[in-house]
Amino acid sequence: MATALPDGTERAAAIERTVRGLDTAIAGLTPSVQGELAQLFVLLRAPATRVIATGVMRPWHLAGENEIERFLRAWRFSPFTRLRGAYDAIHQLTYAAWYGSNESWSAIGYPGPPAVA
């Protein structure tokens, strides 16, 4: 994601917007899928399980880009389908939140929907 993010103050705003997009996307899922995602976030948040499941030693707000990329890569190519599924959920939710927002469109040459009279 880092390479698609703008710099400076716009960066914080873009992250904030994407997190809100994530919330909206999750709110539209069924209660049982929301429950599965809640389990995933509990696992990622608690320090002990975070270290075991992701290998990320520092709390998320201090974690480096390389560290996070290593964790995502490990899950993406994990021998366990559950971890690959969790990676895919993060991939799908994050990109949906990012590219669902008008602000991301100019960078990819998408003009937005046509005006309909």
Binding site: M1, Y95, W105, I108, G109
Partner: peptide, 25 residues
């Protein structure tokens, strides 16, 4: 090909994904 359906369906992360999306049109 619309931005959300494409970006979530395209595989890859970070640099490779961003490069792919930069050629979206």
């Amino acid at each position: 090909l619309h931005p959300v359906l494409s970006s979530t369906t395209f595989t890859g992360l970070g640099e490779m994904h961003a490069r792919l999306m930069s050629q979206f049109s």
